[in-house]
Design a binder for these strands. Structure first.
Length: 425
RNA sequence: GGAGAAUUCGCCUAGUGGCCUAUGGCGCACGCUUGGAAAGCGUGUUGAGUGAAAGCUCUCGGGGGUUCGAAUCCCCCAUUCUCCGCCA
């Protein structure tokens, strides 16, 4: 939810943001109109209700023989209070609908336009070169027995897979390595629920345009989360947080579920785009004025991890039209995938400013003693997909894969992942 | 799955249709007192909407209903606890 005061006082800022995103600008004017209707309705209701309260006291104090007449009079007042209340509710609803459809105003400097209009901030590391024809991650995975795609499809359908043997170990190593980094940086580790109530899913902003990306269990009225961001954002919903001792920083470990409804036919090979994967996600609750610094901090942790794993990547400032509705700015880190000759997203970090917190009602106390929404930020710290870049980047001519040094302690000192040559995984 | 009990301000608690515009205590904050502290005394202490402000309105787990009037009566839902059943 956008800040209604900002909407009232600086609608142009929101119009510009809507235009940069390619969203409706006219929506801003409809929301403004709904806001003034809403306030007028509240004023009327408050006045009527005040006279009803006064009247109630007269009835209570009146002698018995006058009571009957007064009650009769009060009945018509009660009816108009009820009507006015209905008008308030209708007006609130239409305002919430219109204002709720307006996305978070993008921050200054975010590039306008769609997916292809991103700005590359930097490229880090060397692109791997090979004196042999590199294999793609699926071939390597088969050679070393890291995953079983055919049986994944047999058991669960397209875009499902088993991580097997070294693949399972590699994922756990990656996740544990990232978790250690998170602990060193002062994050509180969390293992989060992956089924959440509708109001939490709605509060995080995932039930808007991308609702068809989400698995829903009608028998229980619960949603399967596509990231632990959802549960971590809900964690402090309806609370007043004490941020005096610094931000709340969580690292949430969870399985993630995505329907990939709009991506039919895209990335069908391998484990790049799947319905289920694991992810360690950073989530911060900070003071609004600290949000941009926190965003760079999260991005910094992501870069440290990818650099230490020896991956070549670029950092992009995602264009306005490609941001989710909650994000005011988003940086993606994309790793070079040699056999695709292109960069693929490995991490994403979003600054949701106060937009998400306002929906979820996560507040802090300002110096004046008032409450105000906090800012929330999130970012990937490790995920199954990284295996793709690791296998392809560190592969060797014989099909073996060098293990980055930082991961070795999490794999019992293993330095080289070798082809099975017919052995079982 | 079945039965019962509960949910009031940070915590505990009073409350059985109008004097609830919600009691009292603890804690917390500020002040008085003191050489300083403790104790004591006093004041304040849910959150939100609206308004330029004074103020007004809403808020007793959430939603709906009955009533001129609901913390209080009725219905639905959520959560917690206890017991029974089933299962790991």
């Amino acid at each position: 939810m956008i800040d209604p005061v900002l909407l009232r006082e600086n609608p142009d800022l929101i119009r510009q943001s809507q235009a940069a995103r390619g969203d409706s600008v006219e929506l801003v004017d409809r929301a403004l109109a709904a806001d003034s209707e809403r306030r007028a309705a509240i004023g009327e209701y408050d006045n009527l209700r005040a006279s009803q309260n006064v009247f109630g006291k007269r009835v209570a104090a009146a002698p018995k023989d006058e009571k009957k007449a007064l009650v009769a009079e009060a009945q018509s007042l009660a009816a108009s209070v009820k009507e006015a209340n209905q008008r308030v509710q209708d007006a609130e609803l239409s305002f919430t609908e219109l204002a709720g459809a307006i996305a978070n105003p993008v921050l200054a400097g975010v590039p306008s336009g769609g997916e292809e209009n991103f700005i590359t901030l930097r490229e880090v590391g060397e692109r791997p070169t090979f004196d042999f024809e590199p294999r793609d991650h699926v071939e390597i995975g088969e050679l070393v027995g890291a995953f079983d795609l055919a049986r994944g499809a047999k058991v669960s359908g397209a875009r499902f897979y088993f991580l097997t043997g070294i693949g399972a170990r590699l994922e756990l190593a990656l996740m544990n390595y990232a978790l250690q980094k998170a602990l060193d940086a002062g994050f509180t580790p969390m293992i989060t629920p992956t089924l959440v109530r509708p109001e939490i899913m709605r509060g995080t902003g995932f039930l808007g345009e991308h609702a068809d990306e989400i698995y829903y269990l009608p028998a229980d009225d619960l949603y399967l989360t596509g990231t632990s961001e959802v549960a971590l954002a809900g964690f402090h919903s309806d609370e007043i947080l004490d941020l005096a001792d610094g931000p709340y920083r969580y690292a949430g470990w969870s399985t993630c579920y995505r329907r990939e409804a709009g991506s039919g036919g895209k990335d069908t090979r391998g484990i790049l785009r799947v319905h289920q994967f694991n992810k360690l996600e950073m989530f911060s609750y900070v003071l609004p004025e600290e949000a941009e610094a926190e965003h760079l901090r999260l991005l910094g942790y992501q870069e440290e991890l990818l650099t230490s794993l020896g991956l070549n990547y670029r950092v992009i400032d995602v264009a306005a039209g490609d941001l989710g509705s909650s994000a005011a700015r988003k940086y993606d880190i994309e790793a070079w995938v040699p056999t695709q000759g292109t960069f693929r997203e490995l991490t994403s970090t979003s600054n949701c400013t106060t937009y998400q917190a306002r929906r979820l009602d996560a507040r802090y106390r300002t110096e004046s003693g008032k409450t105000a929404p906090v800012a929330t930020l999130n970012g990937t710290l490790a995920t199954t997909r990284w295996i793709v870049a690791l296998l392809e980047t560190h592969q060797q001519a014989d099909g073996s894969v060098r293990v980055p040094e930082v991961l070795r302690p999490y794999l019992g000192g293993l330095e080289l992942i070798e082809p099975l040559n017919g052995r079982r995984p």
